[in-house]
Design a protein around this nucleic acid. Structure first.
Lengths: 227, 227
DNA sequence: GTGCGTATGAAACATGTGTTTGATACTCGA
DNA sequence: TCGAGTATCAAACACATGTTTCATACGCAC
């Protein structure tokens, strides 16, 4: 039976929450059903009762995470009015919040990182339902700054540069924690990252725009990559 | 007994090679000793004979990878002469080659990605021996472009922006493969990425420099992060 | 050839772990 | 109160997988 709203969470939901944490921490294989059940305060058999097996639980966790993200951080539904650089700043700030806001279930992004390293079917679903619309939205914003169409290769790679900078602090968090301990520990961490990425990217895109207007597009595909 | 040079590789070395591949593909836990031995064409017991156990094999794989990287892609030993922007371009190209050059054991970077998600002791060693000197080297180059000291927060975050862009195509390779299939498949992929990151970052750093010279440093640590 | 250290082989062992089972308790409508 | 559907529980099961064992083969000094 479905659980009533505003109740201390039924077993099924507690399992999803606990599973999310454990899957994010340990990965699918290393996550032990016994551990999940213990954290959820549920019996060992409950996973196989409420979900069919461990794998279906994994899928349920992803479904849950996707719904949560879209409800709380709807990145694709940005207003389209305003100066491109303001839109960019707002986008980056929202994106960083989504990445680092520890307010609520903070394991969503880590789960995604794992999927990227070793994709299962869940990645495809998430890309189409979540990532692609977000990325397209960013491309439109960046397009407004470069003066090139949203589907132009340069626009898309510039958008990837923006995303990449933000994600870096997440993916390589363990490394940068070791390189510059102070950063991550600062209360203003999220704001600092967002502000820096905005600054760096804005200046970059201004430079790109003037290059574009001067007709200085880089010739791509030339074989001069190797030293 | 140690194996003579230029021989078809002894069991111990074949095990390391095979283990590297499997660990990178599946992660430590999912990697099965039976699978590793099969790929190495060795007996099941050989892992426990040549190394003590699976974990020591993992350590040996990392040791091997670190040595290989330092021999083949010594990033920290760059020349310091030349215009900063040329040094930056060279650094980025070398770094991208190191990330994507499929020429030889291509599993090193993937192993590192896994360590970042879920650090074991190996990450610490690699950070100190490999990553930190590389990063410091980049900071000096970037410092030459911003006009700020190498250990200045702005310089370090700008360096992180450069690294982040490059790593993005690796960490999120599976995603960008789904978003823009053509990119990854192009022969010129490595060159394209390097060229774009260089372009984007150079323009950004020029902008940063003029902001710095005009005294327009962003006030950090302000509480204006949340919307 | 004999003997010793090293390496490989096939099989057995031990344990961690996902899943199933059958019993028991709880909820709610008739 | 009864009974059916639902949920929880402890125990057992089944299998994958890291490790060990012991037998055998190889290489080399004497």
């Amino acid at each position: 039976m479905n659980h009533p709203i505003d109740m201390p969470l039924g077993t099924k939901d507690r399992l999803i929450e606990a599973a999310g944490e454990v899957f994010a921490e340990k990965g699918f294989r290393d996550a032990k059903v016994r551990d999940i059940c213990a954290r959820a305060g549920a019996n060992l058999a409950s996973v196989n009762y409420h979900f069919r097996d461990k794998e279906s639980l994994y899928a349920a966790v992803f479904e849950h995470a996707r719904r949560y993200e879209q409800e709380h951080y709807p990145l694709e539904s940005f207003g389209t009015h305003g100066a491109p650089r303001d839109l960019l700043a707002a986008f980056i700030r929202r994106f960083c919040l989504r990445l680092f806001d520890a307010g609520r279930p903070n394991w969503h992004v880590k789960l995604m990182s794992r999927e990227m390293l070793e994709p299962t079917g869940e990645l495809d679903t998430t890309v189409e339902r979540d990532i692609r619309p977000t990325f397209e939205r960013l491309c439109v914003i960046v397009s407004g700054m470069t003066g090139l169409p949203p589907d132009h290769d340069v626009t898309r790679m510039c958008s990837a540069s923006v995303i990449g900078q933000c994600l870096h602090y997440h993916h390589c968090g363990e490394v940068s924690r070791r390189l510059c301990r102070e950063w991550q520990e600062a209360d203003s961490f999220i704001g600092d990252v967002a502000r820096h990425v905005t600054w760096f990217s804005t200046r970059a895109l201004e430079g790109v725009r003037s290059d574009v207007e001067a007709g200085r597009l880089p010739a791509s595909g030339e074989g001069e990559a190797r030293p």
